[in-house]
Simulated scan of single mutants.
Amino acid sequence: MTRFEVVTAIAAPPQRVFDVSLDVEVHTASMADAAERAVGGVTSGRLRPGDTVTWQATHFGLRWRMTSRISAFDPPRHFVDEQVRGPFRRWHHAHHFEPDGHGGTLMRDVVDFAAPLGPLGVVAEFAVLNRYMPRLISARNEHVKAVAEAG
């Protein structure tokens, strides 16, 4: 299993960043390079506690589907999305939003994941996913930052 953190400074208040981070259309736009879209569950608007969404995207030339649920929700400080069906053996993504003391937010993503396929999955984590996943989350966060800071 792999765990990584990405911290992003955003010049917008925590509530704004929290709300933007739960917006399906913002997420979809942030993953445009992977042609990601919501195809089931909540497919537009802002996600709420207990909501599920099924994402479809193309990574590594393959089409993937993952259904995740908002399993924890404490606005504007924290929420968690977890895979309930999809390509990972485990996917747990905790989103934290802390005031930076200057009117902005430190957004901290903590992701725990495990690839499927036993030993082959472990090799995939170390060979590819340990670098790919943090870059993917960082790219998403840059989009969230741009939207949140635009007001």
Rank of each mutant, 00 (worst) to 15 (best):
1 M>Q: 09
2 T>A: 14
8 T>R: 12
10 I>T: 10
13 P>A: 14
14 P>T: 09
15 Q>N: 11
16 R>G: 02
18 F>N: 05
21 S>F: 03
23 D>G: 10
23 D>A: 08
24 V>R: 03
25 E>Y: 12
30 S>C: 06
31 M>K: 10
32 A>M: 03
32 A>S: 15
33 D>C: 03
36 E>C: 15
37 R>E: 15
38 A>V: 03
45 G>Y: 07
47 L>D: 03
47 L>H: 11
48 R>L: 13
53 V>L: 05
54 T>K: 04
58 T>P: 03
59 H>F: 15
59 H>V: 14
65 R>T: 13
66 M>T: 06
66 M>H: 01
67 T>A: 02
69 R>C: 00
72 A>S: 09
75 P>H: 06
82 E>S: 03
83 Q>I: 01
85 R>G: 08
86 G>H: 09
92 H>I: 11
94 A>M: 02
98 E>M: 08
100 D>I: 00
102 H>V: 07
104 G>L: 10
107 M>W: 11
110 V>E: 13
111 V>M: 10
115 A>K: 03
115 A>Y: 06
121 G>T: 07
124 A>I: 04
124 A>E: 01
126 F>V: 08
128 V>E: 01
128 V>T: 11
130 N>W: 09
135 R>D: 09
137 I>L: 09
137 I>Y: 09
139 A>R: 12
142 E>R: 15
143 H>D: 11
143 H>V: 06
145 K>F: 11
